[in-house]
């Protein structure tokens, strides 16, 4: 009888981690404030109004935060939807935006993808108005400062700038190291600081890539029943 493939044994044990506010690592009081505000917005805190925008460099965690808002708003009993505009760019904008004024909490990711596209800008502008008329919450994310977005439709630009705006800073190396260790701990993995530093100097540097690598390391650690030591990680990264 054949031995079962060892890969099949560990898959079920590996933990997946949702994007929540609890596992978003921030490194400054300003970031903490932004996260607190987003959490309050997800609860529809009336002090924050109905429109919020976040911006930051790629890898700063904007998508994570939008997912966290979606998660928290749903838990608070809200009808929610997340829309990654970059993936929907080839769709007819009126079709995508039609009726979305009914969704209580709408999260639009990658606003940069549609800026400068008149049909999309107009569809979003009308959606903004319809949502304003019905008092629904909208959060958008962009990788460009909202004030510097290449939006051709002044009406849309002004509505975006009338939102509550937060800048989400990218983590520096020390921050990434801490984020990696905390993320590993949340998955039940012990990641020594030495190994985390080793990973940071040899692996891709965006937090998204680092967390994906962590998934691989988690799986490999389970598969080989090894701790995440520098030699073990070096071997996995192909640096023998």
């Amino acid at each position: 009888m054949n031995q079962p493939d060892p890969v099949q044994l560990f898959l079920k044990v590996s933990l997946s981690d949702d994007a929540t506010f609890a596992n978003f690592y921030y490194h400054s009081p300003a970031q903490q404030q932004a996260v607190v505000a987003l959490a309050a917005f997800a609860r529809r805190d009336p002090r924050l109004g109905t429109n919020l925008a976040i911006w930051g460099a790629s890898g700063a965690g904007l998508t994570h935060l939008l997912q966290a808002v979606t998660h928290a708003a749903f838990k608070a009993g809200c009808h929610v939807q997340y829309l990654p505009l970059r993936d929907l760019i080839d769709q007819a904008p009126e079709r995508v935006c039609d009726g979305l004024e009914q969704v209580e909490m709408l999260c639009l990711d990658d606003l940069d993808a549609i800026s400068g596209q008149p049909a999309w800008e107009q569809a979003l502008f009308h959606l903004f108005n319809r949502r304003r008329d019905t008092g629904k919450h909208l959060i958008v994310a962009a990788h460009t400062p909202i004030a510097a977005l290449d939006v051709g439709l002044a009406d849309l630009q002004s509505r975006l700038l009338g939102s509550l705006i937060y800048h989400i800073d990218s983590l520096d190396d020390a921050g990434k190291e801490q984020a990696l260790i905390r993320r590993a701990n949340a998955r039940g993995l012990d990641l020594p600081g030495e190994t985390a530093r080793f990973i940071l100097t040899r692996a891709p540097r965006t937090t998204q890539d680092l967390f994906q690598l962590l998934n691989r390391l988690d799986n490999a650690s389970l598969q080989h029943q090894r701790k995440l030591t520098v030699p073990f990680v070096r071997g996995l990264l192909g640096e023998v």
Binding site: Q33, R47, G49, L161, G162, S163, L164, I165
Partner: peptide, 21 residues
């Protein structure tokens, strides 16, 4: 200086920070 809506957006940010801090 541009318009009232943006002025209000800036004030919202200040008020939110005052609330949270």
């Amino acid at each position: 200086r541009s318009n009232v809506r943006e002025l209000e957006g800036a004030l919202k940010r200040v008020i939110a920070n005052a609330h949270f801090t």
